[in-house]
Simulated assay, not measured.
Amino acid sequence: MSTASRVLNSEWTKITSVRSTLWTLVTALVVTVGLSALICGFTNAQWDQLSAQERATFDPTYISFSGMGLGQLAMIAFGVLVVSGEYSTGMIRSSLAAVPQRGVLMVCKVTVAVLLVLVVSMVISLSSFLVGQALLGEHRAQLGDPGVLRAVVGGGLYMTLMALFSMGLTFVLRSPLLAFAILMPFFFLVSNILGGVEATKKVAQYLPDQAGSRVMEVVATTGDRPYGPWGGIAIMLLWVAAALVAGYGVLRTRDA
């Protein structure tokens, strides 16, 4: 068995043997699907009270992903815990002693985590869509409608990239408390505030969450954005790449 294969097996064991990391994925599923279902059901019940403008711009696909704003916090937590767990317990010293090639260690850890998150994220995205559309009744969209499949697949990619970005930043910070203190308020509060203020709105649209979420829209309500659905994912990928490169730089140069 090659070194990479052994490290991959080791990283899989680390992730699956820690309950807290797995529970964050379960939480992401329950919160996202549950909140999306609640909002879709409420929207259908209140349809007659919507204005003509709201009905004309109504996006049944996007509203079925309403829970992702909160569910993504669980994905962020997963990314933070996967990396910071070794630093908080001191296991990182043993890991680096066993795998002195730090790049190999990081690539294997990221690969295992991303594959696991990708599967869960796709389940979350598809489940949110199916449950949400069922509750929207006659206002629902079909998976075969133009742009809908792209939005569902994009929703899974968005959640995956959120976890990956969190992993990269946590490699830089190496502290779960510091990572949570920066990531949670930023994506839950700061990004929304910046996006709602006219002076910072144009800058905020290039933040990873706001750019990436564009892929889940079928009826574009953000016409002032100079990029489309996949352009938003590309911007998010640049943020993720920057976080991972920075994380590798810190892992390579700092002691455990």
Results as ranks from 00 to 15, higher is better:
residue 197 V to A: 14
residue 162 M to W: 09
residue 16 T to K: 09
residue 168 G to T: 01
residue 132 G to I: 03
residue 220 A to Q: 12
residue 116 L to W: 05
residue 174 R to A: 04
residue 225 R to E: 11
residue 13 T to K: 09
residue 179 A to T: 06
residue 196 G to H: 13
residue 218 V to W: 13
residue 160 T to K: 02
residue 30 V to R: 11
residue 190 V to L: 08
residue 154 G to R: 05
residue 130 L to K: 07
residue 252 R to F: 12
residue 251 L to Y: 06
residue 74 A to V: 01
residue 236 M to C: 08
residue 84 S to I: 02
residue 104 V to K: 10
residue 208 P to V: 03
residue 207 L to K: 08
residue 75 M to C: 09
residue 4 A to Q: 08
residue 42 F to D: 13
residue 136 L to V: 03
residue 10 S to R: 06
residue 200 T to K: 02
residue 188 F to N: 07
residue 151 A to S: 12
residue 200 T to P: 08
residue 234 A to H: 05
residue 94 S to I: 07
residue 202 K to M: 11
residue 215 V to R: 04
residue 48 D to T: 13
residue 48 D to Q: 14
residue 124 I to Y: 04
residue 110 V to N: 02
residue 46 Q to V: 08
residue 39 I to N: 11
residue 193 I to M: 15
residue 105 L to N: 05
residue 36 S to W: 05
residue 183 L to H: 07
residue 56 A to L: 15
residue 149 L to Y: 10
residue 180 F to V: 01
residue 32 T to Q: 09
residue 125 S to R: 09
residue 232 G to V: 06
residue 104 V to S: 13
residue 185 P to V: 14
residue 133 Q to L: 09
residue 148 V to K: 00
residue 54 E to R: 15
residue 96 L to R: 03
residue 40 C to E: 07
residue 147 G to H: 07
residue 129 F to E: 04
residue 151 A to G: 03
residue 123 V to W: 11
residue 130 L to S: 10
residue 230 W to D: 06
residue 29 L to F: 15
residue 8 L to V: 13
residue 125 S to P: 13
residue 209 D to S: 14
residue 136 L to G: 04
residue 253 T to C: 02
residue 223 G to I: 09
residue 84 S to T: 12
residue 220 A to M: 11
residue 80 V to S: 00
residue 245 V to Q: 02
residue 203 V to K: 03
residue 184 M to S: 03
residue 207 L to Y: 05
residue 18 V to I: 15
residue 136 L to H: 07
residue 46 Q to L: 12
residue 86 E to K: 00
residue 101 Q to W: 12
residue 229 P to Q: 13
residue 157 L to Q: 00
residue 62 Y to K: 14
residue 155 G to M: 01
residue 38 L to W: 15
residue 150 R to W: 04
residue 107 V to K: 04
residue 192 N to Y: 04
residue 67 G to Q: 04
residue 248 Y to P: 00
residue 201 K to C: 01
residue 60 P to A: 10
residue 61 T to W: 11
residue 230 W to M: 14
residue 172 V to H: 00
residue 171 F to T: 02
residue 78 F to R: 04
residue 49 Q to K: 14
